[in-house]
Computed example of a mutant assay.
Amino acid sequence: MLTSAGCAASPTDSDAERLKAGLARVETQCGAKPGTLKLDSDNLVAVMPTPDAKYETIDCVFRELKKPEFADHIKLGFVGNEAYAAEEQK
């Protein structure tokens, strides 16, 4: 799992709706499955691609998330990599 979060200063409901619409647009534009980008209660973005997601798709998602409209909602971090380490040991 990959999470991406940031510090946003108390956005309004309309900001949240605009952000959700922007994330849905990114999913469509990049060919990511719906639900790949999730907005949490603090208006922080989580990126949770499916295990079979193509590199090019996720690369496109991150390129789009670098744009100014998402800048206050993004802080990159990786979560869940331990699952892949267990697979390598098999």
Score class of each variant (00 low, 15 high):
R25Y: 01
D52I: 11
E87G: 08
A53S: 04
A5I: 09
M1A: 03
A8K: 09
E88P: 09
K33W: 06
V79P: 08
A53L: 00
V26G: 00
H73A: 07
C60K: 00
M48H: 11
L44T: 08
A86P: 05
H73K: 12
K90E: 10
T28C: 05
G80W: 04
A21M: 03
M48P: 00
L2D: 01
M1I: 00
R63V: 14
V26C: 06
Q29Y: 13
E87S: 12
A8L: 10
E87Y: 15
M48K: 06
A5Y: 02
A71G: 12
S10D: 07
K54I: 10
D13E: 14
S14L: 04
L76N: 12
I74Q: 06
L65N: 11
E88I: 11
A16R: 02
N81W: 11
L39F: 02
G35V: 09
E64F: 07
V26N: 07
P49M: 11
D72L: 14
P68H: 08
E88T: 12
S4I: 03
E17K: 11
M48N: 12
M48D: 15
P34A: 14
N43R: 08
K90L: 14
E82A: 10
S10K: 11
A46D: 02
P49A: 09
A16P: 07
P49S: 06
T50K: 13
D52K: 09
K66R: 15
A16S: 03
K75T: 11
T12G: 01
M48C: 13
L37W: 04
E56I: 04
C7V: 08
L19A: 09
G77P: 02
A21W: 05
T36G: 01
A86M: 07
P49T: 08
G31V: 01
A9H: 14
A24Q: 01
R63A: 14
Q29N: 15
G35N: 03
E69V: 13
R63D: 12
D15P: 00
E27L: 03
G6P: 08
R25F: 08
S41C: 09
D52L: 10
D52C: 03
A46E: 00
F78V: 15
N43C: 12
E87R: 15
A21E: 07
D40T: 03
A5P: 02
R18H: 04
V79T: 14
E88V: 13
N43T: 14
I58Q: 03
F70H: 12
E27F: 10
T50G: 06
